[in-house]
């Protein structure tokens, strides 16, 4: 089986970010970059599938500048067999990224494209569904459990009401939610071993003509400072006064 795992380099989701003074982007001074946490869950699931069923090749792919190599090396350390960096310094919107990933998938012919449901930087939650649409693959987004069945997968996915279970034939696309697994800690031997795994660079094959563009970014309006109250009866009185009780 072949699994393609797209990896996005994102600002550390636990860091405090600020807009640049001119609003043209985010001030990344002193900020660490990580694998998008949902992509890390996707890669972990791919590794677990290999541990369960044996013959699985896992290819991690990233689209971006040479800096993405840092995240691809980590993906190799976590268990990807090889990595591909589609190297570009152009800005891609979600559809542009999806076009590029779909082109790679057509070449690589994975049984599963397994990726995060959204990136924690732009919070778009689009690329997986777009790749599935372009390749006309059945999709299961927001996966919380993945089991293999003959010829495909059975995926439990989170929904607005709770859960549902879908069965998809291969090839298919799955996006991961938080509770699918907890990614493993990568120990030093894995990091050293990853240095000798193949990481290929290639240029983008589709053109980037974005459908959407960021005009500016800014900090949200600050919430007015609240107040502390000393007792529950005071709280109830204030809430009644505000008309929310």
């Amino acid at each position: 089986m072949k699994i393609l795992v797209p990896i996005k380099r994102v600002v550390d989701p636990y860091s405090r970010v600020r807009p640049l003074p001119d609003g043209s982007g985010i001030d990344t001074t002193g900020i660490k970059f990580e694998i998008n946490p949902f992509d890390e869950i996707a890669l972990e699931e791919a590794v677990r599938l290999r541990e369960r069923i044996g013959d699985v090749e896992i290819v991690a792919v990233s689209l971006g500048t040479s800096e993405c190599e840092e995240q691809l090396r980590k993906a190799l350390a976590m268990g990807a067999d090889r990595a591909i960096l589609i190297e570009t310094d152009q800005l891609y919107d979600p559809l542009g990224i999806a076009n590029e990933l779909a082109a790679l998938a057509q070449e690589f012919q994975p049984d599963i494209v397994l990726m995060g449901k959204q990136a924690t930087d732009d919070d778009c939650n689009q690329v997986g569904q777009m790749v599935a649409a372009i390749l006309e693959l059945p999709q299961a987004t927001f996966a919380s459990k993945v089991e293999t069945v003959p010829g495909g997968v059975r995926v439990t996915r989170e929904t607005d009401e709770g859960h549902e279970t879908l069965e998809l034939n291969f090839p298919c696309l799955i996006t991961t939610d938080l509770r699918l697994n907890e990614p493993r800690y990568v120990a030093l031997p894995g990091i050293i071993k990853a240095r000798s795994k193949p990481l290929d660079r290639r240029p983008a094959v589709t053109s980037s003509s974005p459908k959407i563009r960021t005009v500016r970014v800014e900090a949200p309006p600050a919430r007015q400072a609240g107040r502390m109250v000393t007792g529950v009866s005071e709280l109830v009185a204030i809430l009644k006064d505000k008309g929310v009780l």
């Binding site: 919107d93 979600p94 559809l95 999806a98 919070d123 778009c124 939650n125 689009q126 690329v127 997986g128 569904q129 777009m130 790749v131 599935a132 649409a133 372009i134 999709q139 987004t141 927001f142 974005p210 459908k211 959407i212």
Partner: peptide, 17 residues
Amino acid sequence: KDVMARVAGRMRAGMIT
């Protein structure tokens, strides 16, 4: 989100989430 981004992909259109 599950459906609309797939519609966008199928239409080769942009999307704002």
